[in-house]
């Protein structure tokens, strides 16, 4: 089967895919969206630091490591929080979201104590 305008068809498909993804995502509860935004924020900050290291150099290497690990660590913690808060995950049905948030805060505090110690 030969498509006369295959590139246009692909574009349409992609547009439809993105549209369906967006409409599906808009159904996500707001608190999960906040967490998603937080994860994106942390990961993009980490990426900027990696780009800085690639361009300028990694002289205070411990500072670079602590910066990136702080971002990545807090992103991972946020993902964990998202898993636990999400109502569709039946495993964590018994776990109240308050408890999950308290865990998130505690882990972040411990993580950043280590980060600050490593920052030098």
């Amino acid at each position: 089967m030969v498509k006369p305008s295959s590139s246009a068809a692909t574009k349409d498909d992609a547009r439809a895919l993105i549209h369906s993804l967006r409409s599906a995502y808009s159904a996500t509860p707001t608190n999960l969206k906040i967490i998603d935004l937080y994860v994106v924020f942390a990961v993009s900050t980490a990426l900027i630091q990696v780009a800085y290291m690639a361009i300028v150099g990694s002289f205070p290497f411990n500072s670079f490591l602590s910066g990136v690990l702080s971002c990545v660590g807090t992103a991972v913690l946020a993902v964990c929080l998202r898993i636990q808060v999400n109502k569709e995950n039946k495993e964590f049905k018994d776990l109240p979201p308050e408890r999950a948030f308290a865990d998130f805060v505690l882990c972040n505090l411990v993580l950043h104590l280590v980060i600050m110690n490593f920052l030098g």
């Binding site: 707001t30 969206k33 935004l37 937080y38 994106v40 924020f41 993009s44």
Partner: peptide
């Protein structure tokens, strides 16, 4: 580095937090 932070705050506002 401050740009993602601003994006985060703006995104929060747009989500209607």
């Amino acid at each position: 580095v401050l740009v993602p932070l601003l994006t985060f705050l703006v995104g929060l506002l747009r989500l209607g937090v």
